[in-house]
Design a protein around this nucleic acid. Sequence first.
DNA 1: ACTTATCTAAATCTGCAGGTTGAGAAAGCT
DNA 2: AGCTTTCTCAACCTGCAGATTTAGATAAGT
Lengths: 236, 236
Amino acid sequence: MRDFTRKLRVLLIDDNANHLRGIKELISLETNYSVVGATRSANLGLGLIKKYRPDIVLMDVNMPEKDGLQAIQSINKMGVSTNVVILSGYDDSDLIYRAMKLGARGYVLKTMASSKLIDAIETVADGKIYLPSILTTRFFEYFQNAAKEETKVVAGENLLLSLTGRENEVLDLLTQGINYKSIAQKLIISETTVKTHVNNIFQKLQVNDRTNAVLYALTHGFKPSSAQETAMTTAA
Amino acid sequence: MRDFTRKLRVLLIDDNANHLRGIKELISLETNYSVVGATRSANLGLGLIKKYRPDIVLMDVNMPEKDGLQAIQSINKMGVSTNVVILSGYDDSDLIYRAMKLGARGYVLKTMASSKLIDAIETVADGKIYLPSILTTRFFEYFQNAAKEETKVVAGENLLLSLTGRENEVLDLLTQGINYKSIAQKLIISETTVKTHVNNIFQKLQVNDRTNAVLYALTHGFKPSSAQETAMTTAA
DNA sequence: ACTTATCTAAATCTGCAGGTTGAGAAAGCT
DNA sequence: AGCTTTCTCAACCTGCAGATTTAGATAAGT
């Protein structure tokens, strides 16, 4: 839970001097916030973050040299845990998606009422995610579409379904980059038997070598089954 | 934009008879909604969806035989476009994540005020996503954590960075499952040169064969660069 | 001018990968 | 009992994959 006994330390990063000043004044009106820094450069901002460890960072996305998304990545690499709220003029679904994926805790449009910015800070400081309804919808436009594409590849008749149990086990080991001899040892069968299985796998997946078999498996949602099944079969 | 001249057609699926009745009555109170069906079985629900093509489906997640998530998958396979709003007693981050990934348009907790359910229907019918603040936060707990894990694998010194431009091109072709001869033809160099490059790649990635080189590349965020660069080099 | 990195290539060699044929044993189905 | 599937294995063969050595050409940095 949030500590209400001390002021929330806020850092501002926006290359537009007017925005920077405006936001600073807006936040200064709130009695329980203190602006620990305000800069027009992402790189300078990173230094300030390391120095002052703010609770909240309000970050513009659209900046020269290093943009907001790159800045978030840099923060992650620094290993500093701070809550970034994105300030953006754009509501592109992929921009929102990328920002959230990188770990942003909130996303506010510059066109929104300034009270929303205060809401965002409060919500994020409280450990929650702040994403207005419209932006949530935008986010999922991208997210659900990407998920659909992902399953599209996985579907498509799927030659993997024609594999037998043993063939699945062999394929599983193939996808780990193991050679014939080691596979034979792991499954406790002869090397020639493994070759037979592998050849059958090649035919069923319509490929000519290991690499393409592995590639087919990985791009068609192959799920390793050996872990349990091998234990079952060897125990039986 | 939504058509306000006709009633919103809603379908209910919940194995709990009391819930089903309660929700039905609640919705019946709204003058601009009409319940086109209500069933306690997901499988029966699928039939009703195909038959009545409802605007909104209110779906319980926790059901015997086929649960709500499996039901969404079935709807997707049917190719019917309807808006599913999940009704759940649980706010697990991964449950919310999976539901939204499968294409749910809204998620409401059974413990929430019934007015929220009406809000959800309105919002979803309006083409937007309905995800209350707490659930949005839960969703991102899972989503951002998964994203972090993803980049963790990609990071880790990354031997890929030690590869030269040409080696990257060769690796790119390797990850497409192409053999020496074809690679040589594509890059317009001799087969022995390709072998030299491949051997250098193996050493740098610390592997002994194609398959493991490809596996390393794919699990460490290898981005194919040949598409443009090859065109550049061949043109030069 | 010297050094280093990169790309190119030939020559040689070992051996595992991949293809084919044939066949026995066990389990399940009809 | 007979058929089918699956798993098992041998023996043989071709050849590409992978390892090693040596070396010329070019470009870039010191």
